[in-house]
C-alpha cells in the first residue's frame, strides 16, 4: 500500500463512520448543521493526528502491559488542549459542541487507530493515517450535517435558501439516526460499485 492509498482510504473504502462505524456518538450528536459537523471533525482530526504522532514516536519505549493507559493519558492531554484552545478562541463553537469535545477522549476511533495502527507502523505512515482517517471522519460529519441542515432548516453553512421551517424532524434526534442510516446505505452501494 503506498502512502496515497494510505491517505485516501479514510474517505471511502475504510471511512471511519460509514464503513468502520467507529465514534458514532459525536456523529449523531453534533451534526445539526454542517458547520458544527466540520468543527467537531477538525477537533477530532487534530487529536487523532497528534496522538498517532506521539504514539508512534514512543512506541518502543512503553512496556506492552501499560500501553493502553499511556495511550489514554496522551489522548486525554490533547483533548484537554483542544478544550482550552477552543474556549479561548472559538467560544461559540465550543458551547455548541458542548459535551462532545471532552468525549473525544472516549471516541473509539482515536484509541483504535493508536492501538491498531500507530503502535505498529513507522512515523510517516502513522501521521498520514491519522490525517487521512481524521479528514475522512470530518467528511462524514460535514456531509451528515449538511444533509440534516438542508432538509431540516432549509439552509447550508448557515445560509438560508428557504425561509421558515424545513422538515424539522431532521434537525431533531430521530433525523440523526434516519439520515445516517440512509447515508450508510448509499455509501454501501457506492463502495460495491467501485
Amino acid at each position: 500500500m503506498n502512502q496515497w492509498q494510505n491517505f485516501t482510504k479514510g474517505f471511502i473504502k475504510d471511512n471511519p463512520v460509514f464503513v468502520l462505524m467507529l465514534g458514532l456518538c459525536p456523529v449523531l450528536g453534533v451534526t445539526t448543521s454542517a458547520i458544527n459537523g466540520l468543527g467537531m471533525g477538525l477537533a477530532t482530526t487534530f487529536v487523532l493526528l497528534m496522538s498517532n504522532t506521539v504514539v508512534t514516536l514512543i512506541k518502543s519505549l512503553i512496556p506492552v502491559k501499560v500501553r493502553i493507559p499511556s495511550f489514554i493519558v496522551i489522548i486525554a492531554s490533547f483533548v484537554t488542549i483542544v478544550e482550552l484552545v477552543m474556549q479561548a478562541f472559538l467560544p461559540t463553537l465550543f458551547e455548541q459542541l458542548g459535551l462532545f469535545i471532552p468525549l473525544i477522549v472516549v471516541n473509539c476511533l482515536v484509541l483504535g487507530r493508536a492501538e491498531a495502527f500507530a503502535s505498529k507502523n513507522d512515523f510517516i505512515s502513522s501521521v498520514i493515517d491519522g490525517l487521512g482517517m481524521g479528514l475522512g471522519f470530518t467528511f462524514a460529519l460535514t456531509l451528515l450535517g449538511a444533509v440534516r441542515e438542508i432538509l431540516g432548516s432549509g439552509a447550508i453553512f448557515g445560509w438560508e435558501f428557504v425561509t421558515g421551517d424545513g422538515m424539522l424532524v431532521f434537525v431533531l434526534a430521530p433525523g440523526a439516526f434516519i439520515g445516517l442510516g440512509y447515508l450508510i446505505a448509499i455509501m454501501n452501494k457506492f463502495n460495491k460499485a467501485s
Binding site: 518502543s60 519505549l61 512503553i62 512496556p63 506492552v64 502491559k65 501499560v66 499511556s70
Partner: peptide, 17 residues
C-alpha cells in the same frame, strides 16, 4: 518495527507511566 520493547517488569511499568 522489530525493535525490542522494554520488558513489562514492575519498575519499568511504573517509570513509563
Amino acid at each position: 518495527s522489530k525493535q525490542k520493547k522494554p520488558e513489562s517488569t514492575f519498575p519499568n511499568m511504573v517509570i513509563a507511566l
